[in-house]
Amino acid sequence: MLPLLGLLIRAPWQTLPQRLTAPGVLAALRLSLLTATLATVVCLLLGVPLAWLLARTTFPGRGFVRALVTVPLVLPPVVGGVALLLVFGRRGLAGEWLDATFGLTLPFTTAGVVVAEAFVAMPFLVISVEGALRGADARYEEAAATLGAGRWTTFRRVTLPLIAPGVAAGAVLCWARALGEFGATITFAGNFPGRTQTMPLAVYLALEQDLDAAIVLSLVLLVVSVAILAGLRDRWLGAA
């Protein structure tokens, strides 16, 4: 809480309006919100099935996969960014193929930002959802099976509604982590205003030159994210 207070006290309130309307601030904010949201969607699409596999099935190496899921948590994000470059970069294992086959390149693109953020934020979603799945009574799924529902129908109509609060909490965590992502993003996606320069990158570079500008940017990121998280909490978690 104290560092927060420090930001508020030190903020250049007189010049705030003109700093807020400085070019680039809005673009960075919009890019941040967009990429964090897309990254959350990616995490949901990949992470929920992964969590289901981890919680509801047994397969060889499951413990290893679970450990692997948490790797982005312990890995310094910059290292994560380098790892992503080694895979999806121009010379990367998958990157070369993507480029040759589809003409797709991820580094230095907005899509690259989404990939970097999703990589770092994924564990938050998977761990939340897996926990929710383990907490949910699997016998409801058995009941659905006896009623003739296949795995997919059971998952969609029974499991997912039962774990909805856990999925929502995981998605919120995931979104918040993606919004604040810096290291993997700047390493993998680089820094280009309007395309890959998210708010945390803008803050870092502003810090090189103008502390006041950095503080203003930080405040903007803070206020927006707190407002959105508070709004989501009331709607999702409050109702559950």
Partner: peptide
Amino acid sequence: PVTQEQDVRAALAKLKLGE
């Protein structure tokens, strides 16, 4: 440029990685 790196070493790293 495709990217504006935060310092000279980061720009060099992108070159070394072939990006």
